[in-house]
Amino acid sequence: MDHSRIYNSDGRRSVIRNQASEAIEIPSVCKNLKPLRLKYNQVCELLNVTRDCLRKIIENDVTFPRFMKDGTSRQSAVYFDTEEIEEWYRNYKAKCRCER
């Protein structure tokens, strides 16, 4: 890989890559893939709800998919499985339409 080193005014080094080295062809199969897991905020955007509303759904709806924690600490990232969220929404939508 061809790099050029440039020194900033404060003496730190920066690496600049040539444009030719950054042009990586991504296969078309990869462009259409869905993410396997979604972050908490991504689920909020997908369902068009606020964080507080999603928290209430998680607490009150036993059919809502359980989240996965990335670690054991309290601050660890929380993720949801994409397919489980989509399946829950399909069932939720069908349930809402049948009740009317």
Rank of each mutant, 00 (worst) to 15 (best):
M1A: 12
M1W: 06
M1G: 14
D2Y: 04
D2Q: 15
H3M: 14
H3D: 06
S4D: 09
S4N: 13
R5E: 15
R5S: 15
N8G: 11
S9C: 14
S9L: 15
S9R: 15
G11H: 05
G11Y: 02
G11V: 11
R12E: 02
R12V: 00
R13T: 14
R13A: 11
R13G: 07
S14A: 07
V15E: 13
V15H: 03
I16A: 13
I16M: 11
R17P: 15
R17H: 15
Q19Y: 00
Q19P: 12
S21C: 09
S21I: 11
E22C: 10
P27M: 08
S28G: 01
S28R: 09
V29P: 00
V29I: 04
C30W: 14
C30T: 11
K31C: 12
K34D: 13
K34M: 01
K34Q: 08
P35Y: 13
P35K: 14
R37S: 04
R37H: 07
L38H: 01
K39G: 04
K39A: 08
K39N: 01
Y40A: 00
Y40W: 06
N41Y: 04
N41C: 00
V43K: 05
V43E: 02
E45F: 10
E45H: 09
E45C: 11
E45T: 05
L47C: 05
N48L: 03
N48Q: 06
V49S: 08
T50G: 15
L54H: 01
L54I: 02
L54N: 02
R55G: 08
R55W: 02
K56F: 04
I57H: 01
I57F: 07
I58T: 04
I58R: 11
I58Q: 06
E59H: 10
E59P: 01
N60K: 08
N60G: 04
N60S: 14
V62Y: 00
F64Y: 10
F64R: 06
F64M: 08
P65A: 08
P65E: 14
P65C: 09
R66W: 01
R66H: 05
R66V: 10
F67D: 06
M68L: 15
M68Y: 14
M68Q: 12
M68K: 09
M68H: 07
K69M: 00
K69N: 05
D70N: 05
D70M: 07
D70Y: 02
D70V: 00
G71F: 03
G71Q: 06
R74C: 00
Q75M: 07
Q75I: 02
S76A: 15
A77V: 10
V78Y: 05
F80M: 03
D81L: 13
D81S: 13
T82A: 08
T82P: 04
T82K: 01
T82D: 02
E84W: 04
E84H: 10
I85L: 03
E87F: 06
E87V: 03
E87N: 07
W88S: 09
Y89T: 03
R90F: 03
R90L: 07
R90H: 09
N91H: 09
N91K: 14
Y92E: 11
Y92M: 09
Y92G: 02
K93N: 01
A94V: 14
C96S: 10
C96W: 08
R97P: 06
R97M: 12
C98F: 14
C98E: 15
C98Q: 12
E99A: 10
E99M: 04
R100A: 02
